[in-house]
């Protein structure tokens, strides 16, 4: 079995990231896991280019800049990251050690778990199609991990935003045939992408169908075709080995709901003394927790992380209290 981590943090949003810093000051090393492919949580996924005005000491800061700064601030403490993987299982043995498993089979162990899972895992929005789930991994993909998978295939993409446009354009030279289906008449992606798309559509390289929706998936073992319904027109049947709906991501609580933690309306109940949950050794901080007076703010999550690591230290060091020191006195001691 792999070595024991000090603290495993589920969620690399701002609160998970700052936990690394506070833990680092106490000499504790952290491993972060996030379902997204990059750190930042809601800040990077929902509003990277919006200014935030209530981070102490920053009159105004772009969400993506705050994430970059946090990454810089925690770098001396050498956090380890497992990105693009969702934690699906969490168990505790009789010695009080937690084993955590991701959907890709990564297994990690520690005495302390910090759940900083925000609003939950970001999952793709799925269109309401009868046999959609049957065709998952059999021709239906919500995320493009390996573009070469589509080499010489006929693919249909749904969506009208940046990711649908960008992928349709990117896959032009890889797939043998691309159809982009969009519910509306206009595309609202970046103007440069829209221009490019129109060019490729005019030259017949991408088949663009607007005011339309994919309404049926056909095939026996693997996807073989889709039916596209066009407003006020006849439904069209298209050959397709792959259907890629790209409608963005939305957060869902997901597997956390099944770990035996006290919940109140999709949030984990905690003791405000140290943000501990009903399971000793598991803490919940940031947007994922709830207590009387809770506010879902970055600032509050930072405070919660700071108090939480004090108790984490005690658990890891057999009940010993950490000594309290200012950073101005000790400075930052980088880890190996």
């Amino acid at each position: 079995m792999d070595n024991l981590k000090d603290i495993i943090i589920i969620g690399a949003g701002p609160v998970g990231l700052f936990t690394v810093f506070e833990a680092g000051l106490l000499g504790l090393k952290c491993h972060l896991i996030d379902a997204l492919g990059a750190p930042g949580g809601q800040l990077n996924e929902i509003y990277p280019k919006k200014p935030i005005y209530d981070i102490p000491g920053h009159p105004e800061i772009l969400a993506s800049d705050l994430v970059d700064n946090l990454m810089k601030q925690i770098s001396p403490f050498k956090p380890e990251f497992t990105l693009g993987e969702t934690v699906i299982e969490l168990t505790k043995d009789n010695e009080g050690i937690f084993t955590l498993m991701t959907d890709q089979g990564t297994m990690l162990r520690s005495k302390v778990i910090a759940i900083a899972a925000g609003l939950g895992c970001f999952e793709p929005r799925k269109p309401a199609l009868a046999n959609l789930e049957f065709f998952e991994k059999k021709g239906v993909d919500y995320i493009i991990r390996d573009p070469l998978k589509y080499k010489n295939s006929k693919i249909v993409i749904s969506g009208g935003g940046d990711s649908a446009l960008d992928w349709a354009i990117y896959l032009v030279n890889i797939a043998s045939e691309i159809t982009l289906v969009h519910r509306r008449t206009e595309f609202r992606g970046a103007p440069e992408s829209v221009r490019k798309l129109m060019e490729l559509s005019n030259s017949g390289k991408i088949n663009v169908i607007t005011n339309a929706e994919v309404t049926q998936l056909n095939g026996s073992e693997h996807l073989e075709g889709v039916v596209v319904s066009v407003e006020g027109g006849q439904p069209q049947t298209l050959d397709a080995q792959f259907y890629i709906p790209l409608f963005g991501l939305t957060p869902k609580l997901g597997p956390i709901a099944g770990w035996g933690l006290g919940l109140d309306k999709n949030a984990i109940q905690v003791n405000t003394l140290d943000y501990s949950t009903n399971i000793p050794g598991i803490f919940a901080i940031g947007d994922i927790n709830t207590y009387p007076g809770k506010l879902k703010l970055i600032l509050c999550g930072f405070h919660e992380a700071t108090l939480m690591v004090q108790s984490a230290y005690k658990i890891i060091h057999g009940g010993k209290d950490p000594s309290f020191k200012y950073t101005t006195v000790t400075g930052i001691k980088p880890m190996q």
Binding site: R125, F247, G248
Partner: peptide
């Protein structure tokens, strides 16, 4: 508005 249109473009059950 423009932002609202953009969001509606990506939602389900529209």
């Amino acid at each position: 508005g423009e932002d609202e249109e953009k969001m509606l473009d990506t939602l389900m059950h529209v």
